[in-house]
């Protein structure tokens, strides 16, 4: 690790000021991914602003009937929060499918959104990686790309976003509240993460001096019909090869609302709203699910080692929808 200076902010304004005042500064909260990457010199800030004391560490009801997850609430506290368990069980499931209990006890909700990819080449400084070192190339395209994207990749980067939590948040249409020197704004979840294009070094649309203050869940939690399926190389403590968050709103066996978000397949949690709309006002049955799955994977493109992901994604979508259609609690 390279040396850095440290300061602790007691409130949001100080935090934002501190990060603007120091060159090459970053916020640190849970630190579980930031320190990991600093240790291998993939990230090397000169200053860290500790934001673990700025409040924003509670879960509260919002006026519109939704739920506000403070950015500094840990992943574990979120997953086990009674309101989350009751109203947003999809989110609880997705969080608990990720990382390990120890990591979930430290990692925060804001930080979860900012996790970097697990691409081997991003993690290995001796190899080419446009995300790590813009312009150096992408070793994964012709390398070992079993983990890599099948949607939305570019010739510059085929990395995937590793979060499970974010897949659920994408399905739930969460909103990310952020604050920066110019005030606060709301970023719809689908606009929070970005596709790599020709600037894969940028994972999100969060500005460098902005800080996440909360993740807001809309009132609709799909507690009756949801599933999170995570396919991975071991039964726990592994990143997703393909994961699916599926939610349905069903009335008299007719689908009124449907969301399908995929993880492990793109640079961001992947949604295809056009495909999802195929389900609306249709019966909740296998034929319909197969059709939407086919529509989603139609635009998938694989690389040498990840071709299986396309069919795995298709099947996982169908399975997830089948299960979601049957969950009654």
């Amino acid at each position: 690790m390279r040396p850095f200076s440290y300061s602790r902010a007691e409130d949001i304004d100080t935090a934002v000021n501190e990060v603007t005042a120091h060159e090459d500064a970053r916020f640190i909260a849970g630190g579980t991914n930031l320190l990991d990457l600093m240790k291998i010199d993939v990230i090397h800030p000169q200053h860290l602003v500790d934001i673990t004391h700025i409040a924003h560490d509670t879960i509260e009801n919002t006026e519109d009937g939704g739920l506000r997850l403070g950015a500094l609430v840990t992943n574990a506290d979120t997953a086990y929060h009674p309101e989350v368990e009751k109203r947003y069980p999809l989110l609880a499931h997705a969080i608990l499918a990720g990382a390990s209990p120890q990591l979930r006890n430290k990692a925060t909700d804001g930080g979860n959104l900012l996790q970097r990819t697990r691409c081997y080449y991003f993690y290995d400084k001796t190899t080419a990686c446009n995300k790590r070192e813009p312009g150096s190339g992408c070793a994964a395209i012709d390398g070992y790309n079993r983990l890599h994207a099948i949607f939305g990749a570019s010739e510059h980067c085929i990395a995937t976003h590793p979060s499970d939590m974010c897949v659920a948040l994408a399905a739930l249409d969460a909103r990310v509240q952020v604050t920066g020197p110019d005030g606060s704004r709301t970023i719809p979840f689908e606009d929070f993460h970005r596709l790599p294009g020709d600037t894969p070094e940028k994972d999100t649309n969060l500005r460098e001096d902005e800080i996440i203050t909360s993740v807001d869940l809309p009132p609709k939690g799909f507690a009756d019909h949801y599933t999170y399926i995570k396919n991975r190389d071991r039964a726990s403590y592994a990143f997703a090869l393909v994961s699916v968050a599926a939610t349905l709103e069903i009335e008299d066996n007719v689908i009124k609302d449907a969301r399908i978000a995929l993880g492990g397949v793109a640079h961001k949690p992947w949604r295809n709203k056009e495909a999802e709309s195929l389900l609306i006002d249709k019966p909740a049955d296998r034929d319909g699910f197969q059709a939407v799955a086919a529509a989603i994977v139609k635009e998938a493109k694989s690389f040498r080692y990840n071709e299986f992901k396309i069919e795995l994604a298709r099947r996982s979508i169908v399975r997830a929808l089948m299960e979601a259609s049957q969950t009654y609690q």
Binding site: Y6, R8, I28, G30, G31, T32, L35, D36, L48, D50, T52, S100, Q102, L103, N105, K106
Partner: peptide, 10 residues
């Protein structure tokens, strides 16, 4: 928690 991924100073 994993003590390797947190700074003492925090």
């Amino acid at each position: 928690i994993n003590s390797c991924l947190t700074l003492a100073i925090m």
